[in-house]
């Protein structure tokens, strides 16, 4: 009964009862999204205090995308993304303390403080970065998929990039090779509607990014990226496609970034009302939480407990990140060549 209501409330494409969407999984979705939200809020706070420097791109508003996609993966699948990467790392299961310590430039961070917000990696979790150059991670993700085919594994690579990045030439060079060689790569365009201050309409001749594979015969789908279940469903289909050896797939996630592009963003390119409206009506965490409560999957107390747990994790991460030492001076000259 609750299940039916849930299915009805969720995305149009959502199938009916499905054993893989157990209440536990749904609660985990909620918790994982909230962890990213709270982590990012804390990062913003530490930035304001001068403990994080440089560029820091928060993922607030887009949490449903990585949480839904990650649930469709196996541990041996790979993930690669841009500089807006904190959410992806947490979704991959990387340690919040290690990520936060990288943000504060400490030795205990994932890159020993040498990479910072935009450049973190974890071989263990198959997370391949963290890339600062818009578009550059797309051929690299394609290459990870190439290695999977070459080594005859059936792992799949998720390659995330933005609506702005989708105009870089190397994206289309990648599309061509991926389809030509049937590479198991899923291109996920996180269409948050803006690239810095440029709206999609002002930069893109074809604004439907899921159609941009047409000239290469790559199938694509548009997904409500504010609905974690819709993402999960689309993610599973795409992963199955790629894993079966049918080649690449494009998923366009319709989403929105609630904060500025980076910490310094004069926010003159969109109205406060636009942001407020989406925050109020389409917040991926609030709407999903309410749905779970309505459907009896979560109770108000659960929401409080989850929030408390998540805040505790984030506070521990923040303390770890501010208490850890900076890298030793000798680190300046290590890891340049093997």
């Amino acid at each position: 009964m609750a299940r039916e209501a849930l299915a009805a409330a969720s995305d149009r494409q959502a199938p009916g009862a499905d054993a893989s969407r157990s209440p536990e999984l749904l609660k985990k979705f909620y918790r994982d999204m909230l962890l990213i939200r709270r982590f990012e809020e804390k990062a913003g706070q530490l930035y304001g205090m001068g403990l994080i420097g440089g560029f820091c791109h928060l993922y607030i508003g887009q949490e449903a995308v990585v949480v839904g996609m990650q649930a469709a993966l196996r541990p041996d699948d790979q993930v690669i993304t841009t500089y807006r990467d904190h959410g992806h790392m947490l979704a991959c299961g990387m340690d919040p303390g290690g990520v936060m310590a990288e943000l504060t430039g400490r030795y205990t961070g994932y890159s020993h403080g040498k990479g910072g917000s935009m450049h973190m990696f974890s071989r263990e979790k198959n997370f391949y970065g963290g890339h600062g150059i818009v578009g550059a991670n797309v051929p690299i993700g394609t290459g990870l998929a190439f290695a999977n085919v070459y080594r005859k594994t059936d792992a799949v690579c998720l390659t995330y990039f933005g609506d702005g990045a989708a105009n870089q030439g190397q994206v289309y060079e990648s599309y061509n090779m991926a389809e030509l060689w049937k590479l198991p790569v899923i291109y996920i365009v996180e269409n948050n509607q803006y690239a810095m201050g440029t709206s999609v309409k002002r930069s893109s001749a074809e604004t439907e990014f899921h159609k941009r594979g047409v000239g290469f015969n790559i199938p694509g789908a548009a997904v409500d990226g504010m609905d974690v279940e819709a993402v999960y469903k689309a993610g599973r289909d795409a992963v199955a496609w790629a894993r079966a050896g049918k080649g690449p797939f494009i998923l366009e996630m319709k989403t929105y970034r609630f904060r500025g592009h980076s910490m310094s963003d004069p926010a003159k390119y969109r109205t406060r009302e636009e942001v407020q409206e989406i925050r109020e009506k389409r917040d991926p965490i609030d709407t999903f939480g309410q749905r779970l409560i309505q459907n009896g999957i979560m109770r108000d107390e659960d929401v409080k407990t989850i929030d408390k747990d998540v805040r505790a994790i984030v506070n521990r991460a923040s303390e770890f990140a501010t208490d850890s030492p900076e890298p030793a001076p000798e680190e300046l000259c290590t890891d340049i060549l093997k």
């Binding site: 420097g53 400490r106 403080g113 040498k114 917000s117 450049h119 900076e326 001076p329 300046l332």
Partner: peptide, 8 residues
């Protein structure tokens, strides 16, 4: 390459 950490 340019390190991120403030001291480096």
């Amino acid at each position: 390459p340019m390190p991120y950490a403030a001291n480096l």
